[in-house]
Design a protein around this nucleic acid. Structure first.
Lengths: 348, 348
DNA sequence: AATCTTTGCGCAATCGTTTGTGCAAAGATA
DNA sequence: TATCTTTGCACAAACGATTGCGCAAAGATT
C-alpha cells in the first residue's frame, strides 16, 4: 500500500517499451489495450487481461507529454480571472477546479489583475501550453482577441464578465434583472435619490446593471435622480466615488454598488463620514460573500449563483472540446436578492 | 500587429523542421540558436542573426510538450491549497501566480477541500502532469507522503500549513509569537477568561498558536483559565464552539479565534446570543482580510504577510528546481498585530 | 608541404506515446 | 485441397523537440 505509492515515484518510470519487453508483446498492443481500444483492434481477452495485470503490477502510468505530443490533447484547461484575490472569482475557481478534476481535466490559473494586456498575455501563455480550452472572465474591452482564439485555436467560454456583442459563448448572471430588482427594492422602500457606483464602463455587466438601475428608476418616474458614477472594479473607486457622493448636496438616500470591492470602498467612505447604514443611507450591492453577513449591518445584496456559473461554463467548454465544435450558448442565470439589514424605509 | 497575432494561431504551427527547410540549415543548429546555446556550439553570429530573424518572421514558438518530453522539465508548478475559496489562500495563490509568471512558470491549481485524501490525490495528479515542483499548504496529518514526493519525485515546499517534524522546507508565519502577542494584548487590556477556538489539532500551526495562547496565559498567571475548544478550520466549527462557550458559566470575556473562517462562525454565534463586540466580549483572530475592517466592529487581528509567504515559497521552490537539489529552508515570517475595535478594556 | 587546431555545423538517436497498415495463422467455405 | 475470412497482433512512422558525437573546411604552426 504505502509501498506501492513509494514505488510509483522511485522506480524508473514504467514505459510502454518496458512493459512490452516484460510481456513479450508489442508496444502497439499494449498501448491499445491500455487506452481501451482492445476490441476495436481485436486483442484477445486473454491478452487483455494479462496486459492489464502486468500494467498495474508495474504501476504503469502513461507519460502525458508523450501522449499530448501525439494526440494534440492535453486534458488541461486555462482559467483566466480578473483577480483571484476577489472572493467572487475565488469561488468560481473553486467550483471549476472541482468539476474539472471529476472530469479528468486539470486547470491552469491565470490572473489578469483587471488588465486587458495581462489577460492577453495570460491567454497566449495558456496557448503555448496547449490547453484544450479556456474559460475567461474578461478584463478586455473588445472581444476581438478572444474571438480569434476561439475561432482559430481552442474553444473559449466567457463567464461573468462578457461581451454583449460577440460570437463567444458565455454563461453569466442576468445582470439586468438583478440590478432592476435591487434598485426596485430600494424604491419600494421609499428611496428616490438612489446613486449608483459603477465598475469599468466598457464592461457588459456594468452596462446591464446600469440599464437595470436606470429602468428601475424610470419605471418609478425617478429619471431625474439617475446618477451613475465611478469606472472601476476596485475598493479605491468605491471609496472615492462614495466620498464624492457624500459631499454632494442633496445627499443620496441610497447607494447601489456594482460589486463587492466597490461596496467595501463605499462602506469605508460612509463610515468615515460618520453616517450610519441604513439609518442615514441605505446600501445594496451586487455579489455575495460570507463576510457580507458580518459587516455592520449585513448587506442586502444580489447573490449570483457562483457554483452554477462555474460548473455550467466548464460543461460547455468540455463539450466544445470533446465534440470539437464551437458552442454558441448564451446562458443567463437568475440571481436572487438577499434581504439583509442595510436598507431602511425612507419616508421623507 | 493584429495581423501577426492572428497568424500565430491560424498558420500551421511552425516547427523546427519547417524552419530548417526554410533556412537551409539543420534542425540542430536552429534548435541551438533558439535555445540560446549558440556560442556554446560556436554558431557564427551571421547564422545566429539569420535564424533569429526567420524564427520570428515565422512566429516560431517551440512546442512545450516536445520540449518537456526531451528535457523532462515542464516549467510548471503545482499549488495545492486547502480551499481556494478561503481569501487567505486566494491571496497566496494570487502572489504565487504573479511571481511564477514573471519567472516563466505556470501554475496548476489543486483544491484539497481541507481533506488529506483529496490532497494526496491532487498531488498524484500533479505528478502525472510532471510538474517541476509543488507548493502545498497541507491538509494532511502526516508528512510521510509529501516527504516521499520531495525525496523521490519533485521538490515540495510547504507554505502556511506545515509540519513541525519534517524534512520538508517550509515558509510559514511565526504562529507562536503571533498568538502570544494577540493573547497578551487581551491580557494587557485586563482580560483573564480568554477562550481559544482552534482549527484541526493535528496541524502544526494550530499547535503553535495554542502554545502561544497557553504561554501568554501562563506568563500572566492565568493558567487556570486556559480553555481551548474546537477542532476544525470551518465557519461551522467556529459557530458551534462559540455557541457552547457563550452558554458556559462564567462567560469568557474574550475569544481568540484561530483563523478567518472560525472567526466568522464565532461572530455569528455572538450576534445570535445578543452579545456585543467588544462591549460584552472581546475578539482577536488570526488572518487578515479586507472585509475584517468592515465587520462590526473591525476585528483586531494577526496579519500574516501573505505576499511574502507566497513569493518566498516560490523562490525557494524554483531554486530547488533549477539547482536540482532539495532545500532545507525553514522560514518563519513575523506577523503583525493589527489593532482595531474588537477588544475592550476589561476592568472587572 | 605536412600536421595540428579551430571553426561551423549536421547526423541520427532519443524522449514515450499513438495509429495506419500489413501480415501470418487459424478457421470457414466450396 | 484451394481459396476466402477472420482473428490476433506487430512494424514503423509519426509528434517536435534536444544533444552527444563526428566531420569537413579553414586557419595556424612548424
Amino acid at each position: 500500500m504505502q509501498k506501492s505509492s513509494i514505488n510509483s515515484f522511485m522506480e524508473e518510470r514504467m514505459t510502454l517499451v518496458a512493459l512490452a519487453e516484460r510481456t513479450g508483446l508489442s508496444v502497439t498492443t499494449i498501448s491499445r489495450v491500455l487506452s481501451g481500444q482492445a476490441e476495436k483492434y481485436r486483442i484477445s481477452p486473454k491478452t487483455v487481461e494479462y496486459i492489464k495485470q502486468e500494467a498495474d503490477r508495474c504501476n504503469y502510468r502513461p507519460n502525458v507529454m508523450a501522449q499530448s505530443l501525439r494526440t494534440k490533447r492535453t486534458r488541461t484547461i486555462g482559467l483566466v480571472v480578473p483577480a483571484i484575490s476577489n472572493p467572487f472569482f475565488a469561488n468560481i475557481a473553486s467550483a471549476i477546479v472541482q468539476k474539472a478534476r471529476e472530469l479528468g481535466y486539470t486547470v491552469i490559473l491565470s490572473d489578469a489583475m483587471e488588465d486587458a494586456e495581462q489577460e492577453e498575455e495570460g491567454v497566449r501563455s495558456l496557448l503555448l501550453r496547449h490547453v484544450d480550452g479556456i474559460i475567461v472572465s474578461t478584463s478586455a474591452e473588445q472581444p476581438a482577441f478572444l474571438e480569434q482564439v476561439n475561432e482559430s485555436a481552442v474553444p473559449v467560454v466567457l463567464i461573468d464578465r462578457y461581451f454583449a456583442e460577440t460570437t463567444l459563448p458565455y454563461v453569466v448572471t442576468d445582470n439586468y434583472s438583478g440590478a432592476l430588482e435591487a434598485v426596485s427594492h430600494l424604491i419600494n422602500r421609499g428611496h428616490q435619490r438612489v446613486a449608483c457606483i459603477c465598475g469599468v464602463r466598457h464592461s457588459a455587466i456594468v452596462q446591464e446593471r446600469m440599464r437595470g438601475y436606470v429602468d428601475a428608476m424610470q419605471r418609478a418616474g425617478l429619471e431625474r435622480f439617475v446618477h451613475c458614477v465611478g469606472d472601476e472594479f476596485s475598493v479605491q473607486n468605491g471609496y472615492i466615488e462614495a466620498k464624492l457622493l457624500l459631499n454632494s448636496n442633496p445627499l443620496p438616500t441610497a447607494l447601489f454598488t456594482m460589486n463587492n470591492t466597490i461596496l467595501l470602498g463605499a462602506i469605508k467612505a460612509i463610515k468615515e463620514s460618520g453616517l450610519r447604514i441604513p439609518e442615514d443611507i441605505s446600501v445594496v450591492s451586487f455579489d455575495d460573500n460570507p463576510f457580507l453577513d458580518y459587516i455592520s449591518p449585513a448587506i442586502t445584496r444580489i447573490v449570483q449563483p457562483q457554483n452554477e456559473l462555474g460548473s455550467i461554463a466548464l460543461r460547455i467548454l468540455i463539450r466544445s472540446i470533446e465534440e470539437n465544435e464551437r458552442s454558441d450558448a448564451r446562458i443567463k442565470l437568475s440571481p436572487i436578492l438577499k434581504l439583509c439589514d442595510s436598507v431602511a424605509l425612507y419616508d421623507k
